[in-house]
Amino acid sequence: MNTEEYIKKWLAGSLSEAELQAFRQTADYAALEKLQQAVQGFKAPAYDVPQALAELNKRKTSGKKNKLINVSWGQMALRVAAVVVMALLGYYFIFSGPATTTVTTSIAEKTTVQLPDNSGVTLNALSSLSYSENNWQEKRLVKLTGEAFFTVAKGARFDVQTAGGVVSVLGTEFNVNVRENYFEVVCFTGLVAITAGQEKVQLPAGHLFRIADGVVFKETGIKATSPGWLANESSFVSVPYKYVLKELERQYQVTVVARNIDLDQLFTGRFTHKNLELALKSISLPLNLQYKKVGEHQIELSGDSK
C-alpha cells in the first residue's frame, strides 16, 4: 500500500488497527497530525440551534404577516377603486388642467377674446363664451350665449354651440347672436354651416340667417365686413321690434316700457351705443313713437294713442 492509499484511508477513517500502526511510523503521519490539529482552529463557531430556532419562529410569524395577507374581495375592490381614482386624478391634472375658460360681459360691455389658435372673438354686451383650452387641439368648440363676432383662423372645424343651434366653419368671419327665442348668424367672409333644430343651412358671405320666435328669416346682400356693434352701433335688418328694445336695454342700463306698440313689427335701422338720446331717437322716430325718461334707468316708449 503506497502513501496515497494510506492517506485516503486515513481520511476516510477506514484504516485497520495494523495499518494505522504502520502508518504512524511515517513522516507523513506526523505532518498530517499536525495539520489535523491546526485545522481545528478553523472550526465554525458553535451553532446554537434552540436560539436560532427561536429567532426563526419570531421572524416566521412576522414574516407570515407580510407575506400571506388575507385580502377580502371588499378590500381588493377598495384598492382597485383607489388606484382608479388616482389614475383619473392624475389624468385630470395632467391633461385637463383648468377645465374650461369662460368670458362674460355685462351690460354695455364689450370684450375681445383670443382663442388658443389665435382665432379672435369679440363679445357684445351681456354675453358669455366658454371653451376648453386643453381640448382645443382636438376640438375647436366654443359655447356661446349672447352675441359674438368670430374671426376664425383657418384650420380644423370650428363649432359654436348655442341654445339656438350650432354654427360650424372652417375659417371665416361671422357674427352669432343668440338671445331668448332669437338666433342670428351673419357671415361676412367664407362659408358657414348652421344646424338649428331641423334647419341645416349653408350660409355664404354676405348672407344672414335668423330664427326669431320660430320664424326663419334669410337676407342676402349684406355689404358690411363686420357687424355694426363692433363700431358701437347696433344694426337691424327686419328684426321684430321687441329684440331691438332688448338690445337697447343691453347697451344702456335702462328698462324700456312699451305702450301701444306692436312689438312684432319689423325694424330696420341702427342705433349708437354712445348716446342714449340719439339712440332713442333712432329707434323711435322711424316708427313715429314718442319716448320719455321716467326714471334714471327707465324709458317709456309710447305709440300714437289716437
Binding site: 465554525a44 440551534v49 430556532l53
Partner: peptide, 9 residues
C-alpha cells in the same frame, strides 16, 4: 430545523 440547521450552517 433541529435536524438540519447546524449542518446547513
Amino acid at each position: 430545523f433541529a435536524a438540519h440547521a447546524k449542518d446547513l450552517y
